[in-house]
Simulated assay, not measured.
Amino acid sequence: MAFWDQLPALIGVVVGAVGSYAAASVTERTRWRRARAEAWEEKRFLTYAGYANTLKAQIRIAQRLGATRGFANVADPLELGEGMGLLAEAESRRAAEWESVLLIGDAETVAAARAWHEAVWNVELYARGLRNDPAGWERAERRMGQARDTFYMCARRDLGIPGPLPTSGNWPRAWQQDSLS
């Protein structure tokens, strides 16, 4: 058998090998990209959740200090000396978590996270005794709740979580309004 007689079979083998390699390469690259995207999505979720939990702990300390200072709609007063130390520690933890949000978050979620912690700082002015207006405290608490909702809305969108944001837990709650009347 002459070489020329075997050439079509040889070309078929070469084309089949190249096609098989290309298909396997594309499939493997697609798998790798998908795995990488899933890993980043999980990292974003953990970063956003960690930041929110850290900020919520800071908020709770500020609210307890607010209760000590006599502000409405908060309970469980915290001794001022202990509370100020806890508040400083909570702010340090928040600042450390913030760096991860800056690194991994999209622009809208980072802006919402910044607005939320700035609203918390405003509440802290009351908790620290630097402001003493009860109506201002309530406005600051309301703004903080709105900023929180915006952060969660942006984070959910960035994470691809469908559906509307659950109803807000703004204060004072309806059951508190009834008891205040």
Rank of each mutant, 00 (worst) to 15 (best):
I59W: 10
E82T: 12
L165S: 07
G85S: 03
F71S: 03
D76A: 13
M1S: 14
V123T: 11
L165I: 10
V14N: 02
A140N: 13
E28G: 03
N73V: 13
E108D: 12
W175K: 12
E99G: 03
R94S: 04
E82Y: 08
V120D: 13
L7V: 14
R31P: 07
F71D: 02
S92E: 08
W116D: 02
R131Q: 11
R64K: 02
V26I: 14
V15D: 04
A113R: 02
G145P: 01
G169F: 12
R64W: 01
W32R: 15
R44H: 10
G129E: 11
A24F: 14
T68Q: 15
F71R: 04
T150H: 05
E141Q: 06
R33S: 04
Q176S: 12
D158A: 10
W40Q: 11
A140I: 11
R69N: 07
A22G: 10
Q63S: 07
D178L: 13
V15C: 04
I11R: 06
L46P: 01
A22D: 09
S92H: 09
R143K: 13
R31T: 10
E28W: 01
N73H: 15
A155G: 03
L7F: 12
V18K: 04
A22Q: 14
W137A: 01
R94I: 02
A90I: 02
A135F: 08
S168L: 05
K43I: 05
H117G: 05
R148I: 03
G50D: 00
A57E: 07
R60V: 02
G163T: 03
L159A: 01
A147I: 01
L125Q: 15
E118S: 11
L130Y: 15
G12A: 11
E41Q: 15
R60N: 04
F71T: 02
E141V: 05
I61V: 12
R69W: 07
R34I: 10
P162A: 15
R157Q: 11
G50S: 01
E138K: 02
E124M: 08
E91N: 13
N73I: 09
Y21K: 04
I59A: 14
D76N: 13
D149T: 13
G169E: 14
L165W: 05
L65C: 00
S20M: 07
A35C: 07
R31M: 09
A52Q: 02
Y51F: 06
M1I: 10
E82F: 08
R143H: 14
G136N: 06
Y21M: 05
L180G: 08
A75T: 15
G12K: 06
V110C: 01
E79A: 02
Q146E: 15
G19V: 15
L87A: 09
W40E: 12
P162W: 08
G81Q: 08
Y21C: 05
D76K: 07
A112Q: 07
W137V: 00
L159S: 01
P172Q: 06
